[in-house]
Every structure is written in C-alpha cells, then in structure tokens.
Amino acid sequence: MLEVKIKKRLGAFHLNVDFKAEQGVTGLLGASGCGKSMTLKCIAGIVRPDEGRIVLDGRVLFDSEQHIDLPPQQRRVGYFFQNYALFPNMTVEGNIAAGVRGSQKKARVRELIHAFYLEGMEKKRPNQLSGGQQQRVALARILASEPQVLLLDEPFSALDGYLRWQVELELSDLLKTFSGTVLFVSHSRDEVYRQCADVCVLNNGRSESVLPVQQLFDAPTTLAACLLSGCKNISRAKKTAPTKIFAEDWNVTLEAGREVPDTIRHIGVRAHYIVPTYESGENVIPCAVERVVEEVFSTVVMLKTPGGDKGYSRLRIELPKQQWQDLHVTGNLSVAIAPKDILLLTE
C-alpha cells in the first residue's frame, strides 16, 4: 500500500495531494498541468515536497517532520516514463541489465528477455524498436529492479490509433503479473476506466477522495470529477425543494427523484441521457436547435435552453444518425431528462 500526503509550492501552483493506493491499479485522473507528473516525481524522490509524508508498504520514503528523505536509489519505485526513457546508447540487453540489482545479472536478463518476448532483439538499440517493443523493454527494465510500486506516467501518450490500443492490451496483461501497488496516471477517462480498479481525481493540484472507478462514472460528486468522466452538460444549481433543483444556466426547475444535498452547487447530465420528446411534463426542457454536427457514427445537436445561449446554457445531445433524421426537427426540440440521470455535484 502506498500512502501519500504531500504539499509542494511551485510559483503560483500549489500541489496538495492526499491519497492511499491499495494493492492493484489505482488511477490518478486529471487534466494536463494539474500536478499528476509532479506527484509521481515526489513519490520517486526526483522532486522534494515542501512538507508531508510518503509511506510505501510501511516503509517511510519521505517525512518532513522526521527529516526522512530517501534518495531515489533507495526508494524501490519503478517509474515508467511517458517516452519510456530507455538509454539510447545501450542495447536492449544493456538496458535491462541496467535495471538488475545484485548478482546473477546475466541469468536474470535472459529470463526477462524471454518473459517479455524480446528474444532476437538483445543486440538492438531502442531506436531500432517499435513502440510496443520499447514499452516491453522499459517494463522489463523496471521489473528487473524489483520495485515495490509501479508508477505509470501517461504510458500510451507517445502512441496513437491502432498501436495504442494494442500496446494498452499488452500492458494490462503484463501488469497482472505484478503483485504490488500500481499508480496509473492519465488524462483519459477511457484508459482509467479500462485499467484501474480505483481512481483518485486530481483537480488543479488538489486530490479528491479515492473512489472505485465505476462510482466515478456512475455518480461523480464533484464538478472536476464529473468533467473528467466526460460529462458535457453542466449547470449551476440551487436546491428549491427537498427533491427539486433549479438549474440556473438552463433556467429550469428539475425533479431529482431523491433527496438533494443542501451543499449542491452544480448538476450534470450526460449527452446520452438527454432524449428528444414531443410530450410536455416533468423534466422536459423546451429548446431551440442551434447547431447540428455530424460525427462518424452519430449526430451531435447543440440546443439553446431557456437559459439562453451563453456557455453552460447550451445542452449537447448525441443521437444515432438515423434517429435524428427520423425526427424531422425544424427549429424547436423538447428534451426530457430522467430524474435518476441527473448528477448532483456538491463541489
């Protein structure tokens, strides 16, 4: 288990993270520049936090009060860099050997080369390898050093398209062979959803509580988590009755179907859960079609709500192409939102 509770100031940026990662894969999800890499660098001992405590499986790596600050060499942290950071002047063999601690180097290197399907590539240099092969070498090298925790920093950002998907599948198989804690840093909700059991959202340098990944997508409770989970429709909100909310940006009152917390600040509704309707009634919003954008397999429609057409006042819905054509919309369109699909955001 990895416990991190650190603070670090860097100019105007404040990093303030506090989370625990159990055995298995924990995601650190956040937008670019929110301090994800900085957090990993603090854990690895590359950057020194201003204050706080980092404990790995009961071993104190950093404690500002006790003046403990282990150098990176002694932390036993496997850092998987965005661009793999393979030593360009060394062969595949040399790179893996650079990771092996202790004696019996040759045998261990052979073992890892076999385990990571790198036979025949021993004498090649990193720039002669494909992206997937480089990734395997990087992982073999890290596992050779017998780390107690793995830190993966946006492991797929250097790849695109089809290769990215393949490499991701490969990595998730390889991760299953690692028995310790894994921290998976990403700005992609999809990657986190596929790879992680738990997730911690990092919002502008501050960490939120660790949640099971399913909960982040089903019921995010903060604005940052909601946005990171891919929700496109957000409105400021006020509680008007025990189960009713007034959506300020959309200028409508909605039924939430459950007790609304007093601290509610925003609501969110995913594009898929907003459905066109011809009826009027509860949670139906009369809108005007503002823009229609054709995507590859669907049609995205931007709607003007009674709240106007500024920023969050718009609604975005997504329909299969055929369904949109069958609607024969000419200018106005009413949409309905089921109470259970309204996400109540308190922060």
Binding site: I46, Q73, R75, Y79, Q82, N83, F87
Partner: peptide, 15 residues
C-alpha cells in the same frame, strides 16, 4: 539532454 533518462537511472538504483 532528456532529464527523464537521468531520473530513470536513479530510480533503477544507480549512483
């Protein structure tokens, strides 16, 4: 020089 290479060396346990 790519400093990640230096960090990689250090986290792997090298002086």
């Amino acid at each position: 020089f790519d400093h990640d290479l230096l960090y990689a060396g250090k986290t792997l346990g090298h002086s």
